Simulated scan of single mutants.
Amino acid sequence: MRKLSKKSRVTAAVAGVALVAVGGGAAYAYWTTTGSGSGAATNSAGGGTVTLHATFAGGLAPGNSVPVSYTADNSTTSSTVVGTLSADVTTNVAGCLPAWFEVTAVTTNSPVAAGATGTSVGSGVLKFNDAAVNQDACKSAIVTVTVGSL
C-alpha cells in the first residue's frame, strides 16, 4: 500500500470534514421540554328569534273549518327548537268577532336549522263557529291567525 503525502493527507482530511458537514444534516440534536397552553373563543350568542307563519285556505263560512300549517324561518347562525305554539284569531272588520273562530296549534319541539326557511313546526285547525246570530259582518272579512312560540 502506498503512503500518502502530507498534502494528500490534508486533502483527505478536508474532504472527510466536508463529507461529515454535508451529511451532518441528517443528524439532529434536540432539547426535551414540557409545556402547556390553552385557547379560547366566544360562542354564538344563540337565541335570536325565528319568524313563524300560519298558512290556511280562504273561503271560510260559518260551520266550516280548514287545516292550518305552521312554519318557521330561522335567519340566525344557530339551530334552535320551536316549542309549544300558541295561536290567536283577529279580523279586519269590527263586527266580525274573533270569538266566533277557534284555532288550534299542535307542535312538539320542532328543530329548525340555522338559516332555514319554511321548516314545518306544527299544524292545527281554524274553525268558523256557526253562532245563533247574524254573522254577515264576516263576509269578505280578512281573518288573521297570529302564532307565537313559548
Rank of each mutant, 00 (worst) to 15 (best):
K7P: 04
P98S: 11
V93Q: 15
L4V: 06
V125E: 06
M1L: 10
A99Q: 09
D73L: 01
N74H: 00
P111V: 05
G115F: 10
K6V: 06
K6P: 02
T144M: 00
A113C: 06
A57H: 03
T108Y: 06
A18Y: 15
K6N: 10
S140P: 00
T76D: 04
A27Y: 11
T32Y: 11
T32I: 11
M1K: 07
V121G: 03
V112E: 09
N92R: 10
V125D: 03
A54V: 05
T77Y: 00
A13H: 09
E102A: 14
N134T: 10
V89E: 03
N92S: 12
A72K: 00
V50S: 05
V22C: 14
S79E: 00
R9Q: 12
D88A: 09
A131Q: 15
T32W: 09
G148S: 02
S120C: 05
Y70S: 01
T108E: 08
D73E: 00
V82W: 04
N129E: 07
V93D: 14
L85Q: 04
L85H: 02
P111N: 07
S5A: 03
A61G: 04
A12T: 11
P62N: 01
G46L: 10
G39M: 14
K139G: 01
T80M: 04
A99H: 03
A18W: 15
G16D: 07
V14E: 13
T33H: 04
T34I: 07
S69Q: 03
S36R: 13
T77A: 06
L126P: 01
G25S: 15
V143G: 02
T32F: 10
V93I: 15
T42S: 13
A57I: 02
V82Q: 03
V14N: 14
S79R: 00
C138D: 06
N64M: 05
A26S: 15
T144F: 02
D73Y: 01
G48E: 08
G58Y: 01
A40E: 15
A105L: 11
V81N: 01
L97A: 14
G124F: 12
V103A: 03
A94I: 10
F128C: 08
G37T: 12
S110I: 08
T80I: 02
D136R: 06
T108V: 07
A113V: 07
V133Q: 12
T49C: 01
S110G: 08
V81D: 00
A41Y: 10
V125W: 05
A26R: 12
A131G: 11
T90K: 08
A132G: 13
L150M: 08
V14W: 14
L52T: 03
T76C: 00
T49K: 06
T42E: 12
A54K: 01
G83Y: 05
F56E: 03
F101P: 05
G148T: 05
V133S: 12
G115I: 09
S123T: 11
G25V: 15
G46V: 08
A21H: 12
S123N: 08
W100I: 14
S78D: 06
S38I: 11
